[in-house]
Design a protein around this nucleic acid. Sequence first.
DNA 1: AGAGTAAGTTCGGTTGTTGAACTGACCGAC
DNA 2: GTCGGTCAGTTCAACAACCGAACTTACTCT
Lengths: 154, 154
Amino acid sequence: MRRTRFDDWPCPIARTTDLIGDWWTPLVMREAFSGRRRFEEIQTALDAPRAVLTARLNRLVEEGMLERVEYQSNPPRFEYRLTPKGLAFWDVLAAMWRWGSDWLWPDGQEPPVVLKDRETGAIVTPLVIDEHTGEPLDVRRLRMGRNPAANPTS
Amino acid sequence: MRRTRFDDWPCPIARTTDLIGDWWTPLVMREAFSGRRRFEEIQTALDAPRAVLTARLNRLVEEGMLERVEYQSNPPRFEYRLTPKGLAFWDVLAAMWRWGSDWLWPDGQEPPVVLKDRETGAIVTPLVIDEHTGEPLDVRRLRMGRNPAANPTS
DNA sequence: AGAGTAAGTTCGGTTGTTGAACTGACCGAC
DNA sequence: GTCGGTCAGTTCAACAACCGAACTTACTCT
C-alpha cells in the first residue's frame, strides 16, 4: 500500500507531480537555485528533517536534476549541483512564484520578496505564454489532445 | 508531529508548495480544467482514494480555488467549479506540462498528449518569460531580493 | 421490490514524516 | 593528544497521512 506513484502516467502534469508532490522537494530546488549546494547549508536554511532531506536529495540525483560531486576527499564531502534538467525546472518554480505572489497574500499585502535581475536590478515578473503566438494562455481555448508525433511505445 | 506546513512562510514558492505538495492536488486541478466537476467523475478519472479526494476538494474550496455549488437539492448534490484564483493556477500547471514534456520522457520519445487550441487546433507550447522584457528567464541573472513595496506586516 | 447513482464516511493496515539523538571521519586550538 | 567543532549523513520511536475496500444515506428508475 505504497503512496500511489504517478511517474508512469501518460500525462506530463502527473509525472511532474510525482516529483514536486514530494513534500519539501520544490524548496530544496529553490535552495539549489539560490546557490546553496551543501547538505548542511540546505538543511539549516530550510530546517527540514535530515532524513527527509537525504531522501529528497537522493531522489533528485536519481532523476538527474542534481549532481552529487565530491568537493574534498578526506573526509569525503559532497555537494549538489544543478544539471541542465534541474536548471530547466526553474520555469516551474517561477510560475509558482508568480501565482503565489498574485494570490497567496491577503488583500492589500504583498510578499516580502521579489525576483530581480542581478545586473539591472529590475523586478522580474514571470508570465506563461504560448511560445508560438507569444500570447498569454487562454484557459477556455485550451484542450488536451493526442500527440500526432508520439511514439506508440511511449 | 504534524507534517510541516509552509503556508505562512514569506516565500511565494513555499506557500504554493504547501498547496500542490499535497499528493493528488495538481491532478485534481487538472481534472477541473478538463471540465470535470463532480466527485464521482473526478474520482473515476483519477482512481484516487475517496477519502483523499474528499480532503483535497475541501482544501481547494477553503483556499478559494474551487467553489462547491449545489446542482440539485433532493438529494443534495454538489459540483466543484473553478474560481478566478483557480483559473489563474492553470499557468502553474502549464509550466509543469512544458517541463514534464521536455524532460520526463526517454530519449526519442514524446508524451502521448499535447495541448491544443480548441479553435485553430494548433499545438500550444507553454513558455515562461519576464512580463516586462518579454524574454525567457535567464536563471543565472536572477536573484531573490526584498520587495520595496511590501507592507511591513506581511 | 430491487438495482443503480451520487457523494461522501468509516475502517484497519501500511507507508511516510518528524524531532532528536547518534555516528564517523576529519580539523584546529590549547 | 585530547577537546570541541564541522560535515554528511543514519537510526529511532511516535505520530500523521494514505491506501483499498466496504459501508451509508437518500434518492430515482425499471
